[in-house]
Nucleic acid binder design. Structure first.
Length: 459
RNA sequence: GGCCGGGUGGCAGAGUGGUGAUGCAGCGGACUGCAAAUCCGCGUACGUCGGUUCAAUUCCGGCCCCGGCCUCCA
């Protein structure tokens, strides 16, 4: 089955044909490091991690570039507010970002370039744009001249007229055209800045992605991803800069994940209804957060709810329960099941892939002999690996507790209670056995009697 | 106002021109000392009004509702 991807550029599902099948390139807009990652940041990280996993199974080499934006006015503001040096803020936030998404089983990208390490490339690009007549200097700024580009607006399907009509912000006086956007702007001494032909300044928002994608993937590359909120203006402007500077096409397939809502409402800081990834990791395992995210197709709006997280956890409980029964049986070395590959190759249909996970777990539960169990286990794990879940030992999964303790029952306490209950059961003292079980249940520990003895899990 | 995405059973959420999504919840059965887990079985659906068609939840159009974006910037 060929890989098809919904391409924002064409507004339909396109068969994916890489420029060079030996080396597929993907660029995804990464975080601006001024604050903890929230669930809105986590969605593209998880979605494109799944795409990356899929691509690595389809092509021999995949170069996945995800940038770190470490120069930005939000960072400057944060530094001004807290009095901390910018580098301290960006370093710390970058580390927290890495720590957070690692718990979501997101693989590191092949290359993670930082904007401040690529100022020279940006300057070169801006100089080229000026030389070709696509950009101009004005009052220490360098602006991209939108009317100079014929196809501007192709990605977001906006016409110049529309944008003029929609303009509701006071236009800076140095702009020749209200739609022109900043490539470079002057910095005051208290702000980060670099020497440039136009004086000391700093880059505009969009130029870094053009510069870094070009350096690591080439001027024309396969896939560019990000959140739907970036289609305009960010990605539109990236295209304008890159196409005009390079005289070549830019990204060929544009993928955008849908918006994020919380309990049915738009997620926003003013409503206060957003969660950081770290906050969620305090109350649920990373895999549950990840699976919850993947339970809605990436292109759809995603509604984050407490119930959704609970359901994702229940799903993983079911899958890990199946695996728990076969811990002693090595998984067969098998390729991911065809139906799971097919689901993901159809524009990353993760909800359908998850439904197949359930079917695979059912088959594992029903497998009669060791060979069948080994094969079913292998298939389930191979399928789950594509989605980046079921990566841990089942016992570890069932013993997960919130950071900072939880119910206070140690594993030794639990084992002791189980032993005591076993004695009661041997003596057919059902009242005592049930009392112990009930007591544990009230403290969040559920017992399950099976042929191989009693197992337990925290809920 | 312009542009875009969406409205599926109690809930979440795929998909399809004519049979089954899947999971959770619910109901019945097997298993169990009783449970839990597991297995077997059951039920409920496609916003609305028209059109196309032998046949529409699926295609087309109107309407209603929901969500988002609309410039370098708070």
């Amino acid at each position: 089955m060929p890989l098809v991807l919904y391409n924002t550029l064409t507004r339909k599902k396109d068969v994916f044909e890489p420029l060079n099948p030996d080396r597929v390139g993907m660029y995804v807009c990464g975080p601006t490091v001024y604050d903890r990652a929230h669930i809105g940041n986590a969605r593209p990280v998880i979605v494109f991690d799944v795409l990356y996993r899929l691509l690595t199974r389809l092509y021999p080499q995949v170069t996945y570039v995800r940038n770190i934006t470490d120069v930005d006015d939000k960072i400057n503001q944060r530094a001004k507010d807290s009095g901390e040096p910018i580098s301290v803020i960006t370093e710390r936030t970058t580390k927290m970002f890495h720590d957070d998404i690692a718990e979501l089983n997101a693989a590191p990208p092949t290359i993670e370039p930082r904007a401040t390490d690529h100022i020279n490339q940006m300057l070169t690009m801006i100089e080229g744009l000026i030389a070709k007549g696509f950009a101009y200097e004005a009052e220490g700024h360098v602006l991209f001249s939108v009317p100079s580009m014929k196809d501007y607006g192709a990605l977001s399907r906006r016409s110049m007229d529309e944008m003029m009509a929609g303009a509701r912000v006071e236009v800076a006086p140095y702009k020749r055209n209200p739609a022109d956007f900043v490539l470079w702007k002057p910095s005051t001494p208290d702000l980060p800045g670099w020497d440039s032909p136009w004086g000391r300044g700093r880059p505009g928002w969009h130029i870094e992605c053009s510069a870094m994608s070009g350096q690591y993937l080439g001027v024309t590359f396969d896939i560019h991803g990000g959140g739907q909120d970036l289609v305009f203006p960010h990605h539109e402007n990236e295209i304008a800069q890159s196409v005009c500077a390079n005289g070549a096409p830019f990204a060929r397939y544009w993928l955008h994940n849908g918006y994020l809502m919380v309990e049915g409402e738009k997620m926003s800081k003013s409503l206060g209804n957003f969660f950081t990834v770290r906050e969620l990791l305090e109350v649920a395992p990373g895999e549950a957060i990840r699976l919850a995210m993947l339970s809605t197709h990436y292109h759809q709006p995603f509604d984050w709810t407490a119930d959704g997280l609970k359901q994702a956890r229940a799903t993983l409980d079911r899958l890990y329960t199946a695996l728990r029964g076969v811990v002693d049986i090595p998984a067969a070395e098998v390729a991911a099941p065809i139906e799971v590959m097919a689901a993901l190759e159809d524009d990353l249909n993760t909800p359908l892939a998850i439904s197949h996970l359930h079917e695979l777990a059912g088959k594992l539960n029903k497998a009669a002999d060791t060979a069948a169990k080994a094969r079913a286990k292998g298939l389930l794990l191979a399928a789950a690996d594509l989605l980046g879940v079921l990566k841990q030992d089942p016992e570890a999964w069932f013993r997960w507790q919130p950071a900072g303790g939880g119910n206070g029952l140690s594993e030794a306490d639990i084992e002791a209670a189980i032993t005591a209950r076993l004695d009661a059961r041997k003596a057919k003292n059902w009242a005592e056995a049930d009392r112990i079980r009930k007591d544990l249940a009230e403290q969040g520990v559920v017992l399950e009697d099976g042929p191989a003895g009693t197992s337990w899990k925290r809920v």
